[in-house]
Every structure is written in C-alpha cells, then in structure tokens.
Amino acid sequence: MEAIADPDDYGELIAALRSTPTAALRPYEVTVLGRWIEPEPARTPASPVKAVAGTPATPLAAPRCEFDVEDAGGPRRIALQAVVPGRRYVIGKGDAADLRVDGTYTSRRHAEVWSEHGAWWVVDAGSTNGTRVEPAGAHAGARVVTANQPVELAEGARIVLSARAEGPAADYPRLALRVAARAAAPLTPIARPSLRTPMTEVLPPRVVEPRYELTALQASGTQSLEVGPSALPLSVGRSRNQTLVVDRRHEGVSGHHLDIVAFDDSGAEAIVHGDNGVRVDGVEHAPGTRFHWRFGDTLVLGAAPTDAPPCWLTLMRSEPVSTSPR
C-alpha cells in the first residue's frame, strides 16, 4: 500500500503561496485571430430521381371544349375552359352543375362528361328520365346512356336529357359536342355575367296556339288540365313528376303510364308505358303501343282487371289562345 503524505510535507509550499503579494500577479490578455470553422461532412452525390411505376402524374389541361345548348332559355353556346383530362363535368339544373341547363324534366345532376385518352365520354348520373346520345345530324342510331356504361361522344354528337321521350328542348334539353380549336375566338366563360349593354328585345308576332282540355275522373274527384302543343310531351301517371298526377288509390296505374306526344285535327298521338296498358272505347293497347286517341273518346288507364276503381280520361278541343313563340 502507498503511504499517505503527511500534511506537514506541504507546509512550506502553502506558506509560500500565502506570502505571495497580490500586486505581483499580472493579468494575461489572450487574443484570438481568425474564426472557428467546423469542417462539413463529405456529401454523397445525389442520385437522379426515377419515376415510380404506377405513380399518377398531374394531368395537363386540354384545350377547351364547347357545347351548343338548346333548353328553356333558348339556343346558346357554353365553353369549358382548360379542360382537365379525367375530371368529370356535371350537366344538370342544379347550382353546382358545370354545364347548367334549364329543362322541365332535367335533374339537378343529370349526366357527367369528361375527356380521357383523346376522346370525350358521357354517363347518366342517376337522373329521373335518363340520357341518350344521338349521332351528328340524325335521330336514328341513338344510344341510351346508363350510369355504368360510358358512351363515347363523336364530334357533333348530341346529348339529349331523356332516354326515350321526344319533345321540345324546353322539356328535354340537348347539348351538341364541339371540340374547340386553340385559335378559336374567346367565348364568355361559364357563370361569368355578361357586361354588354342590355338591348330591348324585339318580340316576334303572336301566334294562335290551339288548346285542348284533358279531364281525369279519379277516386278523389274530377281534375281538368288545359294544354297546348308547346307543353308536349304530356305525361300521365302516379309519380309526382308527371304532368297529370293520378290518385295513389289507382293501383293499376303506373308511375309513368302514358305520354301524349302530338295533336292533330281529330285527336292526339299517345304512347303507352304502364304495365297494365290502356283501353279506349273497348280497344286495349298494350305497353309500348303508339295509338291515335280521338277527341271525345273515353280512355281508361290500367286496362287489366284490378280491385282499384278505374281512372277515366277524356280529351276535348278548347278555345285557342294567342302566345309568343320561343
């Protein structure tokens, strides 16, 4: 073991330190020249970024697309500016629609269109009356559009906001595709108010429109409706969106049972949609039948025997009125 030092061994040293005068101590001044620099760690050269397979890229905006629209507001052209491929644009009468149209039987979200792989496509958006596509300049060859099966739109193809019914654009709006060239003249964008000075509209001469009275004898009583050619097609059924709504007690009548599609000097042309058909003066007409209904003849909705009371319809000519064409 080491020996422990005797405190007296340091006595002289302690005495010498205590006897050193304070004035003899001289301060030292240290000056640092330059600056402290920490070396940076060696950097590894960055490898080039490689695209990951399957990673979606941001789509580039395509040229604008134009649609020639016919609806209750009259003919006009609507432009979609800087179309984004793959994005769906809504057609309907709702405030949020990208292509807003006004039609009696148009749904708030009626159909959707989009551009993909250099082509335009359309699907029905779950509308009440459906959608069809007609080739450019022809009614024949129309294709009914469903929510699950997109239909390609050719240049000039016309979208009709009705699967099968025929009628004026005020009831069933139409949109014709017109892919605009890049050098086309600029059009007023969607939803941008016109800044042009309003002009006084020159009204066309009034024309005399024939009028007809449709009377329904139902379980709840008698109901009369005065109509004219401008109101066609006129729909009859138990659904609330029909022109003439039939009492719910008539269970033999379908939601959309009958359409009146045209008038002539002796009566009207009608199409049967209801499952139970119709009967006119003892003659039965099955679903899908187009027949002529003469003025004064009694039509019974739901010709098949049921326990519900029958619903009787009669059609008569009434006094014409003056109207202004749209």
Score class of each variant (00 low, 15 high):
Met1His: 12
Ala3Leu: 15
Ala5Ile: 12
Asp8Phe: 10
Tyr10Trp: 12
Glu12Pro: 01
Ile14Asn: 10
Ala15Cys: 05
Ala16Val: 10
Pro21Lys: 02
Leu25Ala: 03
Leu25Ser: 01
Pro27Arg: 00
Pro27Met: 03
Glu29His: 08
Leu33Pro: 02
Leu33Tyr: 03
Trp36Gly: 09
Glu38Pro: 01
Glu40Asn: 07
Ala42Thr: 13
Thr44Phe: 12
Pro45Ile: 04
Ala53Ile: 12
Thr58Trp: 12
Ala61Val: 13
Ala62Trp: 14
Asp68Cys: 12
Asp71Asn: 04
Pro75Val: 08
Arg76Gln: 08
Ile78Asp: 15
Ala79Glu: 15
Ala82Phe: 09
Pro85Gln: 07
Gly86Ile: 09
Gly92Trp: 07
Lys93Met: 13
Gly94Val: 08
Asp95Asn: 08
Asp98Ala: 08
Leu99Trp: 06
Leu99Phe: 05
Leu99Ser: 05
Asp102His: 14
Gly103Val: 10
Tyr105Ala: 10
Ser107Trp: 14
His110Gly: 09
Glu112Pro: 01
Ser115Pro: 10
Gly118Ala: 01
Gly118Cys: 02
Trp121Leu: 01
Ala136Cys: 09
Ala142Ser: 07
Arg143Trp: 06
Val145Ser: 04
Thr146Asp: 06
Pro150His: 02
Val151Ala: 02
Glu152Leu: 09
Glu152Phe: 05
Leu153Asp: 02
Ala154Gly: 15
Ala154Cys: 11
Gly156Ile: 06
Ala157Ile: 11
Ile159Gly: 09
Ile159Trp: 11
Val160Ser: 07
Val160Gln: 06
Ser162Trp: 00
Asp171Trp: 10
Pro173Ile: 08
Leu175Pro: 08
Leu177Asp: 10
Arg178Asn: 14
Val179Cys: 14
Ala180Ile: 05
Ala185Asp: 15
Ile190His: 13
Ala191Gly: 06
Arg192Glu: 11
Pro193Gly: 02
Thr197Met: 13
Pro198Gln: 03
Glu201Pro: 04
Leu203Lys: 11
Arg211His: 14
Leu214Ile: 07
Thr222Lys: 15
Thr222Cys: 04
Thr222Asn: 06
Thr222Ile: 12
Gln223Phe: 09
Glu226Lys: 06
Glu226His: 00
Ser230Glu: 12
Ala231Glu: 13
Pro233Lys: 00
Ser235Val: 07
Ser235Cys: 05
Arg240His: 11
Asn241Gln: 09
Leu244Ala: 02
Arg248Trp: 01
Glu251Gly: 12
Gly252Arg: 13
Gly252Leu: 11
Val253Cys: 06
Ser254Ala: 09
His257Gln: 04
Leu258Phe: 02
Asp259Asn: 13
Ala262Asn: 06
Phe263Asn: 05
Phe263Trp: 05
Ser266Thr: 07
Ala268Trp: 04
Gly274Trp: 01
Asp275Tyr: 12
Asn276Gly: 12
Gly277Lys: 03
Arg279Tyr: 00
Asp281Gln: 01
Glu284Gly: 01
Ala286Ser: 10
Ala286Gln: 13
Gly288Arg: 08
His292Asn: 11
His292Asp: 12
Arg294Ser: 02
Gly296Val: 05
Asp297Gln: 15
Thr298Trp: 05
Leu299Cys: 06
Leu301Tyr: 06
Pro305Trp: 04
Leu315Asn: 03
Leu315Trp: 04
Met316Ser: 15
Met316Asp: 12
Arg317Lys: 12
Ser318Pro: 02
Val321His: 13
Pro325Asp: 11
Pro325Gly: 11
Arg326Phe: 10
